[in-house]
Design a protein around this nucleic acid. Sequence first.
DNA 1: AAACAACCTTGATATAGATCAAATATTATG
DNA 2: CATAATATTTGATCTATATCAAGGTTGTTT
Lengths: 250, 250
Amino acid sequence: MTRVTPKSLSFSQECKDCPIRHRAVCARCEADELNHLEQIKYYRSFEAGQTVVWAGDKMDFVASVVTGIATLSQTMEDGRRQMVGLLLPSDFAGRPGRETSAYDVTAATDLVMCCFRKKPFEELMFRTPHIGQRLLEMTLDELDAAREWMLLLGRKTAREKIASLICIIARRDASLQLTASDGELRFDLPLTREAMSEYLGLTLETVSRQMSALRKEGLILTEGKRQIVIPDYDLLLEETGDDSDGGFLI
Amino acid sequence: MTRVTPKSLSFSQECKDCPIRHRAVCARCEADELNHLEQIKYYRSFEAGQTVVWAGDKMDFVASVVTGIATLSQTMEDGRRQMVGLLLPSDFAGRPGRETSAYDVTAATDLVMCCFRKKPFEELMFRTPHIGQRLLEMTLDELDAAREWMLLLGRKTAREKIASLICIIARRDASLQLTASDGELRFDLPLTREAMSEYLGLTLETVSRQMSALRKEGLILTEGKRQIVIPDYDLLLEETGDDSDGGFLI
DNA sequence: AAACAACCTTGATATAGATCAAATATTATG
DNA sequence: CATAATATTTGATCTATATCAAGGTTGTTT
C-alpha cells in the first residue's frame, strides 16, 4: 500500500469516441458498434453560472463533461441548497431510464458537455454490455465519493471540510493544470465561496473565515482570487481529519 | 404525478434465486445460467451488534440482506463515526472488483446475509449481462439515496433529520411489518439512539431530545422502547423539510 | 425478586458555526 | 477612468447542537 504523493497521482484518461470515461484508452472503442455514437452525440456549451437543467425538468439526454465543471444540487423549499455532485472532465451526468433530472445541474465554470440522446444511448447500452459495465464501475466510484462526502458533511469541522475540499480539487484537477515543482501544487480553485459553501454544508462566511485561517497559517497561498498554491500537500492533508494512510491508496 | 400515501406504498420484491433485488420477480431467474448460483452461494447469520467486516479487511464475497438490517459506517482516527449505508432486506453489499471492504459492515439487528463468493459472482456477471444491468440500476438507486442523505446531513436541522429518518424507515420497513389502519403507521424502529445519531450526524443526546419533542407534540407515539406509531404520516412529513410533493412520486 | 447491564432521558453549560451588518477587493461597464 | 456590480473578507452577536453529568427505564441473569 503506497501513499499517493502529488507527483505520483494517476488519473483517468478519456477515450474520445466513447461516452464514458475509461481508466485507459479503450481498445474496444475501435469496434463498429461504437460508431453509432457519432450519430447520436452532440455538444453543448454553457457559461459559468448557467443552469443546464433544473430539478424536475425533462432531461432527454445523458452527457459527459468535456471541459469545465458542472455541479448537481438539491434545493429545499425555503432555499437551502446542498451540492450533491461535482462533475469534472470525463464525469458522467444523467441516469439511463429516468425521464427527468433529479437535481439542478449548473455550470460552475464555462462548460462544454458531450450529450447523447437518451433513447439511442439506452439501446446502445443494451446491445453493448461493456458500456453498461463501464457505467456500473463509474457509478460505484461515484457512490464511494458520495459516501466520503457524507462523512465530511456529517462529522467534520469547518476547518477539516475546507482542507478536504482543497485536497479533493487538487487531486482531481491536478492532472490538467498542475506543474508540480518541489512538491508544490498550483491550480485554479474553480468554485466561488458560495459554491464551496454549498459543497460543504456551511455558510459562505464560514468558508471565507476558514480560508483566511489556513492562509494565515501558511497551509495555502492564494494568488489572485482563484489560484491556490499548496506549499506542502501532506501538511494540508493532516488538517482534513482523514486517516493519513487510508483514502489515497494505489 | 401522484403522491404516495402510506396505503399505496409499493416496494421491491425479492427474487429468491437471483443475487440481486428485482422490482418484480424475475422471469429470467428460471434460466440455466442462474443455477450456478446455487453452487456459489451460502448464508451467514449475525447477532445484533456483531461486525460483519471491518473497513480495510479482506472481503471475498458480495452479499444481499435476507433478514434484518446491516449498516455501513466510516470511522475517523479519533473515533468520530458516520453511517453511510443502511441495508434492508434485499439490499446488496460489497463491490465487484474490490478486494477489501471500504466500510465497517455491522449488524444493526439480528441479520442473515446471502453471500456469493466474489470470483464466481464476477464471472457470472460477465457472462450474464442482465445481472450487471440490474446491479447498475440498484447502484444508481443507492446513489440517489446517498444524495438525499447528503442534503439531510448538510442542511437539515436536528428536528428535520429525525423526522426524515422516521419517514424513511417507515417507507422502507412498512411493507414487511405494517398493518395500516385508518392511515396510522406502526412499525419497529430497528436502530438504537446511537445508530440513529450515526446515521444523522448528530449526538445521541440530541436524537433523544428531538424524539421526545416529537412525542410530546403527538407527531409520533412510542410503545415499548422500539415500536413507533405515526398517527398521521403527512403531518410528520411536513417536519422533514422535504418538498411536500417532490421526492415520493410514483 | 434482586442485581446488573445496556439503553435512554433530561439538565446545565459551552462552543462552533450561523446570522446580521458593514467594509473592502475585484471585475465589468459606460 | 469613474462607476457600478459582484465577490470576498471581517466584525459582533446569537443560537442550535455538542459536551459533560446525572438519573431513570427496560430487560436479563442468577
